[in-house]
């Protein structure tokens, strides 16, 4: 699937550029995209390093396990394949909480830590996503948000009479998307089979 999407973007991009007579846009876009990617990865070094340190402390203090225990009813349903005291659960819970509060800078490192822990549980091919990873990313990309911080800032900037009016509509849309994502994940998991 990802192969087709990737190829389609490049293919239609080149065709569109050729058709409109500015083929040089493709080369420039390729360089620009690569640079953005490297910049993004480099800027992640700082926050990931910081949050990995904090997470290690939280783990040593027994707080990650405590958090995992609190969320157990929910995580047992969502991640049946992950052992209940596994550090992955703690990281998943922290990632989702940070997402809900609109704390993107903390959410990403937590998510990457969760993925590392889930990868440790990957008994199959290390190149292939496990069902638990797919569920986690379904939750993550549908992104349950309670406070859309960035957009509220922009609304205030452009003189909104009611900048937080969209909080309710956002929570409605994001909740529905999460339900759909989790349901789709469950159905697809069965269609694709448990293995690999």
């Amino acid at each position: 699937m990802v192969n087709y999407v990737w190829l389609a973007m490049v293919f239609f991009g080149v065709v569109a550029a050729a058709a409109s007579g500015h083929i040089e846009a493709v080369t420039m876009a390729a360089v620009e995209g690569a640079q953005t990617a490297v910049k993004t990865s480099f800027s992640l070094i700082a926050i990931i390093t910081f949050w990995l340190g904090i997470m290690k402390l939280a783990e040593a203090a027994g707080l990650v396990r405590g958090l995992a225990n609190l969320a157990r009813p929910l995580t047992r349903f969502l991640f049946p394949g992950v052992p209940r005291d596994h550090p992955a659960i703690g990281a998943i819970v922290m990632n989702l909480s940070a997402n809900m509060l609109g704390l993107g800078n903390a959410a990403t490192p937590m998510g990457l830590i969760a993925m590392q822990e889930l990868q440790k549980l990957n008994r199959g091919d290390k190149d292939t996503a496990t069902p638990a990873m797919c569920t986690f990313l379904a939750l993550n990309t549908s992104c349950i948000t309670l406070i859309p911080t960035t957009i509220i800032g922009i609304r205030i900037l452009y003189g909104s009479q009611d900048p937080t009016a969209v909080v309710g509509t956002t929570i409605f849309a994001t909740s529905l998307a999460t339900v759909v994502a989790v349901t789709a994940d469950r159905i697809l998991r069965r269609l694709y089979g448990q293995g690999g």
Binding site: W6, M9, V10, F12, G13, V14, V15, A16, A17, A19, S20, H22, A25, V26, M28, A29, A30, E32, G33, A34, T36, A37, V38, T40, S41
Partner: peptide, 16 residues
């Protein structure tokens, strides 16, 4: 990220 962002940027900048 390089693989993904190169494709996305081409898609966007080319007019596609």
């Amino acid at each position: 990220l390089v693989a993904m962002l190169v494709a996305v940027t081409i898609f966007r900048s080319s007019g596609a």
